[in-house]
């Protein structure tokens, strides 16, 4: 079986995997990072989204061997060492953007990528369209959109205008 090494959440990791092992299986089963979830088998739901070399990807649609040498960030790698949440995590909490929590890790990872890739602003329409690859069954997305909108201002160091609901 291939032995692969990679960097996960800033720390070196290595594991023996089968060629057919998916990245999400490596993370969950070998590295015990169970925050990344699997919600479908057709690459639709986005519960498994992680960041690989700076890009958000669906870890259920990538082989573990393809991640050899890569830098991977999962939901477990977002909070700072003292437990302080990433602004996106904090805004999700603030705006009640999660209920059962199952889609949440993938949703947060996608949202961070979305905000990072829109330095000039992010409209509600862009947020909704940008979440095309993530399905939530609980919230109706209303509060997720609000949380991401708020996180954009925090992450880009801008003051959020006071707006009506």
């Amino acid at each position: 079986m291939p032995q692969i090494s990679l960097t996960v959440n800033g720390k070196p990791a290595s594991a023996e995997v089968e060629s057919r092992t998916l990245l999400v299986e490596l993370l969950r089963e070998k590295l015990h990072l169970t925050g990344t979830h699997v919600g479908c088998d057709t690459s639709q739901c986005g519960a498994c989204v992680v960041e690989v070399d700076g890009k958000s990807v669906k870890s259920c649609t990538m082989l573990a061997v393809q991640a050899a040498g890569a830098h991977v960030t999962t939901i477990e790698g977002l909070a700072s060492a003292d437990g302080k949440l990433h602004p996106m995590q904090e805004m999700f909490r603030e705006h009640h953007a999660l209920q059962c929590g199952y889609c949440t890790p993938g949703m947060v990872m996608s949202a961070i990528d979305l905000v990072n890739s829109h330095p000039d602003g992010l409209s509600e329409e862009q947020i909704r369209h940008g979440l095309e690859g993530n399905i939530c069954r609980c919230t109706g997305y209303h509060n997720i959109v609000k949380a991401i909108h708020a996180a954009w201002f925090v992450m880009h160091g801008k003051e959020m205008p006071i707006a009506a609901e």
């Binding site: 690459s43 990807v57 669906k58 996608s110 940008g130 095309e132 690859g133």
Partner: peptide, 9 residues
């Protein structure tokens, strides 16, 4: 095409 994650890869 697809979604953000699909477009990444």
């Amino acid at each position: 095409i697809g979604d953000r994650q699909v477009r990444s890869r």
